[in-house]
Nucleic acid binder design. Sequence first.
DNA 1: TGCAAACCCCAGTGGGGAATGGGAGTATAC
DNA 2: GTATACTCCCATTCCCCACTGGGGTTTGCA
Lengths: 150, 150
Amino acid sequence: MELSCRTEYALLALLELAGHYPQAEPLQIRQIAAQQQIPERYLEQLLATLRRGGFVQSQRGAKGGYLLTMEPWKITLLDVVNCLEGAEARNRKEAVGTLARIAPTLESVVVDEVWQEVYETMRGVLQGYTLQDLCEQRDSRRQMNIMYYI
Amino acid sequence: MELSCRTEYALLALLELAGHYPQAEPLQIRQIAAQQQIPERYLEQLLATLRRGGFVQSQRGAKGGYLLTMEPWKITLLDVVNCLEGAEARNRKEAVGTLARIAPTLESVVVDEVWQEVYETMRGVLQGYTLQDLCEQRDSRRQMNIMYYI
DNA sequence: TGCAAACCCCAGTGGGGAATGGGAGTATAC
DNA sequence: GTATACTCCCATTCCCCACTGGGGTTTGCA
């Protein structure tokens, strides 16, 4: 359960794609990166992860780019976080609590239980939001900003 | 909001100390490390952080060691996490979402809002447990284990 | 067919967390 | 008063994440 830079960038990219859904025109890495101020080459890697996770499909060649493969209301934030956290051979991450500990102590078991509960509540919150939800929040916030400047 | 190895180790050490509260005899790093299977020299640094945070006091010299400075039911897990996460010049950690971004985009603001909500729920859970609570859970679990082996 | 635009793969660099090590400081024990 | 048993502080090593770079491959278009 990371909520790191990685995850935020990926989420921003997906929001950008969701904003254009279901347009047939793919969005290019460069456009997304510029729009969301994400390092271009880094975003490239994150999009590869999202592609392997089945969230986006890519179109190579000139006029290529990325497209959402699912409807924005079917993708929860938890799905995205899971995709980026569990991505490919993040082998060591699960063992963060049982780090090189042969026999877990009673105390460590109790602490782990609390942490499982914490993670569970995190998952609960993250599962409550879809890309669609965030897009709507963005739109209403955009309206607010326009109102503000009048 | 880390929930990293650091925090778990510190928590285990505090639990060990809380188990002996309010004994006048200080516990040594070596004992805690052996009991909880924590690298000795690393635990040393974490205890320094806890000392600076006011959770423990140290006694130097022979027969020295560490003691809790507060009652175990007055220390919440959130207190501990805050102490270790916010410890000394972790200056960059707050800006993890606004990483080198001059003008935050609308999308990043929306994402940050969700993440604040996630962190808030985490804090809620962590604030609901004190060292005392975990000690009691450990004790009852110990009873269970004894029953199991009969 | 040629070429540029775009994705794709792999190999590095820099900083921070997770340790590890060598001493210096300080209190008790004899 | 010296030895001993601890804490304390500084520096170093190792690995992962955030990021950069150099190619290579696929595709659309003139």
